[in-house]
Design a protein around this nucleic acid. Structure first.
Length: 557
RNA sequence: UGCCGGGUCGUCUAAUGGUAGGACAGCGGCCUUUGGAGCCGUAUGUAGAGGUUCGAAUCCUCUCCCGGCAGCCA
C-alpha cells in the first residue's frame, strides 16, 4: 500500500489480516446508517474511515441502510443520506443496500436457531422482562416460557409473522445465558412485533429484527470483512459473534473505534432532531447544525471534511475534538481556492473630494493572490465609496492601523486616502467622511514610495450590489453541552449564534453568484451563497468561517 | 465495585523495549497592498506507586480516574 496511508489501529489489523490471508486478501467495508435522521460530521468521520479503507486496499465499500425499525425511519432520511454520502465522494458503486431486503433470509435463519433449540418465543410483558433481566451486579432469572418445545416455538413464531398477535405480546429471544455478566447475553430479543408500515416493505412484515440479531447477518450476507462501528457496541461483539457462530455462516470481524465529539455542539441524532422540532434552528440543514447538509449549506467543501476526518485520526479513547480543527480544515481549503471579492458588511460612506463626480475608474484586482492562475478582475472606483465602520476610529486603540482623523490608509487595489473631515449627525454618530486621494499612490503604478500601515477594503457606492450576510457563531456557549450535569443542553444554546446583516455592499463581481458559490470577502471571512433563501434580486450569503483575526485577539487582552 | 473498554502536550494523534514526534490551539518574531496567507522560532505531555530490564509510554503488579452496558432503539 502507499506509504502515506493513515496509521491507525484498524489499518494495522487489516495489514495483519492480509498478511495471514484471512479473507483471501479481500477488504470490504460498509457504512450502515439507520434512516432515522440526517447525517452529521460524526457520520462523516465513519464514512471517510470506511470508504478510505476500501479505497486504500483496493476493496469495496457498501452503503447499507439498517432499516429494521419502521416506527422511526422515513424515506426522506434515506434520500438525504444518499445525497450526503455521495457528496463526501465515498464511492459505493451503486451498492445501495437495505437490511429490509434480507428480512426473508433473516427469518429463515431465526427458524434455524429455533430448530437448534437456541431461540424461543417469550410471552413476558415488557416490564416483566425487565424484572427478569437482573441488574449489572445481579444475575437475571429465566423466563417461564424459556423451555417451550421446538415445535411450539416454531408454531408461535410463524403465527407472530402472520400477525396473530398484538404489539408487545410476544418476542423471539435467543437462548443464551440469563446469568451472563454481559447483560447483552441475557437472552436478547431477536424479533419484536410492530404493526406499522415500513418505508420499503410496507405491510409485508409485522415482526422486525432487532439490531443485535440483524446487524451481523447483514454484514455476513454482504461479505463484509471488517465491520467497523463505534465504541458503545463493544459489549455487543460477543453477541455478534454468537449469532454468526451458531448459524455457522460467514463471519466478519467487528472492530470498534471512538466516535467523534466536537466542542461547542451536540452530536446525537436525538438532540439534533429536538433542535429541529423545537425550532431552535431552521431545519436539519441550518448552517449552524453539525449535520453534513448544514455544513454544506454553510459553505464547507467535501474536501475540507474529508481532510478533517483524516487529521482528527482514529483511536479507541473517548475524545473531544476542538472545533478549531474543523475551522482550520475549511480555511486551509478555501484559502487556496476561493475567489476574493470586496464586500463592506457595515458601511460608512466616504466622499473623495478630489475625484471627479460621475467618473468611474476600473482598477485591477487579483482574484486569488494564492493562485495567479485564477486571474484578475476589475473593480470600479468612484467619488463616493463605502468602507467598513470598524475601519475608522476617532479614538483608536493602541496599534490601530486603519483610518483616523487626519490619518492615511490604503484602499486595497486603489489609492491611499487621507481623512480630512468627519461628518456627524445630531446624535454625534459618524455618518460620513471627507477624504482625499493621493493620485500618485495608485496601486501598481509604482509612482509612490509612501508606506502606510493599513490597507482596508472598500466598495463603490453606486457601482455596488446590496446583499444580505448571515454571520454564524457556535451554537452552544459551553464546550460540551451534552455533558453538562446541571443543565439541559437547550439552556446552553448561544442566543447570538446568528446575526443577519441586511445592508451589506458588494462589488459588482458578485452579481452573478449562484447558490453554493464560495468567496472570500477580503478581511471578513469566507462566504457562500445560501441555497435556501438567496434569490437573483436579493443575494444571501452565509459566513462559512471568519478569517483568523490576530488583531481582534490582541484587542481582547 | 458485575462485565467490557480506555488513560501520551490545552486539544487530537504517533512512537509496537532504544532520542516522546506531528497537527490544531497558544506565544514570540519575520514578511505582507487582506491585522489573511506564508516563513522562522518557542513553551507545554507519558494518571500514580512499585517491579522486570543496560534501557519502559510500551512488559508485570497494585491503585486512581474516565467511558459503555439493566430498550421489544441503533
Amino acid at each position: 500500500m502507499n506509504g502515506n496511508r493513515p496509521k491507525n489501529f484498524i489499518y494495522e489489523i487489516i495489514d495483519k489480516d492480509i498478511e495471514i490471508n484471512k479473507w483471501g486478501g479481500r477488504v470490504h467495508t460498509r457504512f450502515p446508517p439507520e434512516p432515522n435522521g440526517y447525517l452529521h460530521i460524526g457520520h462523516a468521520k465513519s464514512i471517510c474511515l470506511n470508504y478510505g479503507i476500501a479505497r486504500d486496499y483496493n476493496g469495496k465499500f457498501n452503503l447499507r441502510f439498517d432499516d429494521t425499525n419502521p416506527t422511526k425511519e422515513e424515506q426522506e432520511y434515506v434520500d438525504s443520506i444518499i445525497e450526503d454520502v455521495k457528496w463526501l465522494k465515498a464511492d459505493f458503486e451503486n451498492r445501495i443496500l437495505f437490511a429490509s431486503d434480507y428480512f426473508e433470509q433473516m427469518y429463515e435463519w431465526a427458524v434455524k436457531l429455533i430448530k437448534k433449540g437456541k431461540a424461543y418465543v417469550d410471552d413476558l410483558k415488557l416490564d416483566e422482562m425487565r424484572d427478569h433481566r437482573g441488574t449489572v451486579t445481579e444475575a437475571g432469572k429465566e423466563s417461564p416460557f424459556r423451555n417451550r418445545s421446538i415445535e411450539e416455538n416454531l408454531d408461535l413464531f410463524e403465527r407472530m409473522r402472520k400477525g396473530e398477535f398484538k404489539n408487545g405480546e410476544k418476542v423471539l429471544r435467543a437462548k443464551i445465558d440469563m446469568s451472563s455478566p454481559n447483560m447483552l447475553m441475557r437472552d436478547p430479543v431477536m424479533y419484536r412485533i410492530i404493526h406499522s408500515s415500513h418505508h420499503r416493505t410496507g405491510d409485508d412484515w409485522c415482526i422486525y429484527p432487532t439490531y443485535d440479531w440483524a446487524h451481523g447477518l447483514e454484514d455476513s450476507i454482504e461479505g463484509i470483512t471488517h465491520s467497523i462501528c463505534t465504541l458503545e457496541f463493544e459489549v455487543h461483539r460477543p453477541l455478534y459473534d454468537w449469532f454468526l457462530d451458531e448459524l455457522e455462516i460467514y463471519h466478519p470481524q467487528q472492530i470498534e473505534f471512538a466516535r467523534l465529539n466536537l466542542s461547542y455542539t451536540v452530536m446525537s441524532k436525538r438532540k439534533l432532531l429536538e433542535l429541529v422540532q423545537e425550532s431552535f434552528v431552521d431545519g436539519w440543514d441550518d448552517p449552524r447544525m453539525p449535520t453534513i447538509s448544514g455544513l454544506r449549506r454553510r459553505g464547507f467543501t467535501p474536501e475540507s471534511i474529508i481532510n478533517f476526518a483524516e487529521i482528527v485520526g482514529v483511536a479507541k479513547r473517548d475524545a473531544m475534538t476542538d472545533i478549531a480543527l474543523l475551522e482550520y480544515a475549511i480555511r486551509e481549503d478555501l484559502n487556496k481556492r476561493a475567489q476574493r471579492v470586496m464586500v463592506v458588511l457595515k458601511p460608512l460612506k466616504v466622499i473623495i473630494t478630489n475625484f471627479d463626480e460621475g467618473k468611474i475608474e476600473e482598477l485591477e484586482a487579483l482574484n486569488n493572490p494564492e493562485d495567479p492562475s485564477m486571474g484578475k478582475r476589475t473593480v470600479p472606483f468612484t467619488k463616493e465609496i463605502y468602507i467598513e465602520q470598524a475601519d475608522f476610529s476617532e479614538n483608536p486603540p493602541k496599534g490601530y492601523h486603519r483610518l483616523v482623523p487626519g490619518g492615511e490608509v490604503r484602499l486595497r487595489y486603489a489609492y491611499i486616502i487621507k481623512c480630512d473631515q468627519v461628518i456627524k449627525n445630531e446624535k454625534g454618530e459618524v455618518i460620513e467622511l471627507y477624504c482625499s486621494i493621493d493620485p500618485d499612490s495608485k496601486s501598481g503604478s509604482g509612482k509612490s514610495t509612501k508606506k502606510v500601515k493599513g490597507t482596508i477594503h472598500w466598495v463603490s457606492a453606486d457601482q455596488s450590489v446590496e446583499i444580505e450576510a448571515r454571520l454564524y457563531d457556535r451554537l452552544f456557549i459551553v464546550e460540551d453541552p451534552a455533558g453538562e450535569k446541571e443543565k439541559d443542553y437547550r439552556e446552553l444554546i448561544n442566543k447570538n449564534s446568528l446575526e443577519i446583516i441586511s445592508g451589506a455592499k458588494a462589488e459588482p463581481f458578485v452579481k452573478s453568484a449562484k447558490a453554493g458559490d464560495r468567496f472570500q470577502f477580503e478581511r471578513n471571512g469566507y462566504f457562500c451563497v445560501d441555497s435556501k433563501y438567496s434569490t437573483e434580486s436579493k443575494l444571501v450569503f452565509n459566513r462559512t468561517v471568519t478569517l483568523k483575526d490576530t488583531w481582534a485577539k490582541s484587542l481582547k487582552q
